[in-house]
Design a protein around this nucleic acid. Structure first.
Length: 460
RNA sequence: GGCCGGAUGGCAGAGUGGUCAUGCAGCGGACUGCAACUCCGUGAACGCCGGUUCGAUUCCGACUCCGGCCUCCA
């Protein structure tokens, strides 16, 4: 029995799909005007893990994640770069895909772009106007009439009256109510635009997700996810648009991941305190980043720092060390570890506990190595299978241990030459020279491990 | 000001009304030429004040502090 925390109710709820055996999940993707930062990575990885586990439970999942490729920031950035919006968005989409694959994500089943759903967007706006939920304002823009949707604010426990009182934003005169938001925006001279019944323009930010999600998954579907900063206003507005347009319940489970913080502040574009995925991957093996994300429960805030990355690296090394030189059987019978792992994951995708089970499995595996080779191989297979649900332990152990960080120091040949020299020194019982070489390598972050089979090394 | 979330051992991070999280670090031991890896053992925690209870870190209330959202942001 799967339980999911639903932002709408503020509680964990037993998951029951709209249609038996099938799950529709829509996740808000990125606005593609810049490279992904670590906060984006957290969201993408969280929902990737969620999608894997939902499939693991046997559901037929349809995972849709949009791409916002028309927006003010895109237009602005393209102007600054002196390129077309299309050239910019295509570049960023390719970069995002590359980052994501390096981080070990499986791609969503479908990635609709806003620009490909212009007719559906226009149709939905027209329905909203026809039903009295939208109006063509004096400015020429089309606005959503929040006062017409009586449940406005239900996702965030907000009341329209309170928002009026606390409104600090410049109230556009064209709006009937300060909380009203744009559905269709008039184009300025030279801006990318589409024809519509309300003149040449482009969609507001929120309407695209209502149009794409309902067109891809139907007007009522199971899970809608996104980052923590999307709860308001984006998701609130989506609910208002979709439920007003279709007259049906929109989404059953609203799922939001936690923020990534830097120095106790949220990492965000507007604060400028973000690290891009590619910056981080220039220093660390991508699986270290993934481990960091998965080692906390998806809803809790994560602190990002060199220290947290290093701790993630060391922990992941312990897992990989257990697999170094260890054969895994082709098949295995799930043990209590699998059961505990699955129980944790069924409890609102508690990856933190799931990961702890991996460590306990590794302890058993390490013990079995010396006295029960067959059991060790079974446990190794089980470890790999469970880790796969988190997208971890996908690399060759030897490769990972030698490349957990990206180093500009000695290359492999240089390291091997020193190891060979040391091996000879040890044969000659010249331990002074042997230790000297070991210290020399240690200074370069290379740690040696002697065993019967020879000496292997790990990048620290 | 409104709404939401959090406060756990040296650090990170789960969880529970009454025996274990887990990882790193520490301490003792085994293994090793010495190490490392690994294994065994071990110390260490639940912001503050009340309440409920035989018993609360866990439930309830107040307080303090921290973070998020309320404007674009995963």
């Amino acid at each position: 029995m799967l339980k999911i925390y639903n932002t709408l109710s503020g509680k964990k709820e037993i998951f029951k799909p709209v249609e038996e055996g099938k799950v529709g999940m829509y996740v808000c993707g990125n606005t593609v005007y810049d490279y992904c930062h670590i906060g984006h990575a957290r969201a993408m990885i969280s929902f990737d893990v969620i999608s894997r586990f939902i499939r693991h439970l046997g559901y037929e999942l349809n995972y849709v994640r949009n791409i916002t490729d028309v927006d003010d920031k895109i237009i602005k950035r393209a102007e600054e770069n002196n390129e077309s919006t299309q050239a910019l968005t295509e570049r960023m989409i390719a970069a995002q895909r590359e980052d994501e694959l390096r981080l070990g994500n499986k791609m969503p089943d479908r990635e609709p772009k806003a620009t490909e759903f212009m007719q559906e967007i226009i149709d939905m706006i027209q329905v909203l106007i026809d039903k009295g939920f939208a109006y063509h304002g004096a400015s020429g823009d089309v606005y959503y009439r929040t006062e017409a949707f009586k449940e406005y604010g239900k996702l965030n426990n907000r009341k329209l009256e309170d928002m009026l009182a606390g409104a600090r934003i410049d109230v556009e005169v064209a709006k009937e109510h300060p909380a009203d938001f744009v559905l269709w925006k008039q184009a300025k001279e030279g801006e990318v635009s589409w024809p519509s019944p309300w003149g040449i323009g482009r969609p507001g930010w929120h309407i695209e997700c209502s149009a794409m999600s309902t067109n891809c998954l139907g007007s009522h579907f199971d899970i809608h996810g996104g980052g923590p900063d999307l709860k308001f206003p984006h998701h609130e507005n989506e609910i208002a648009q979709s439920e007003a347009a279709t007259g049906k319940d929109y989404v059953n489970y609203w799922v939001h991941c936690g923020a990534v913080r830097v120095n106790n502040e949220k990492m965000s574009k507007s604060l400028g305190n973000f690290f891009t995925v590619r910056d981080v991957l220039a220093k660390y093996n991508p699986e270290v980043v993934r481990y960091l994300m998965v080692s906390s429960q998806y809803r809790s805030a994560i602190d990002y720092s060199d220290q947290s990355l290093n701790e993630a690296k060391v922990a992941l090394e312990r897992l990989y060390t257990a697999l170094r030189g260890q054969a895994a059987s082709a098949e295995y019978v799930p043990t209590e570890f699998t059961e505990r792992f699955e129980t944790a994951m069924k409890d609102d995708f508690n990856t933190a506990v799931a990961v702890s089970v991996l460590f306990e499995l590794v302890r058993e595996l390490n013990k079995a190595k010396t006295d029960n080779v067959a059991q060790a191989e079974l446990l190794a297979a089980e470890l790999l299978a469970l880790a796969d649900l988190l997208g971890l332990l996908k690399q060759d152990p030897e490769y990972f241990l030698q490349n957990s960080t990206v180093s500009e120091g000695l290359d492999e040949a240089g390291i091997q030459a020193l190891i060979d020299e040391r091996t000879q020194a040890r044969k000659d019982k010249n331990f002074a020279r042997s230790d000297e070489i070991r210290d020399e390598l240690a200074d370069q972050g290379i740690e040696l491990l002697d065993s019967r089979e020879g000496t292997s090394w790990t990048r620290r």
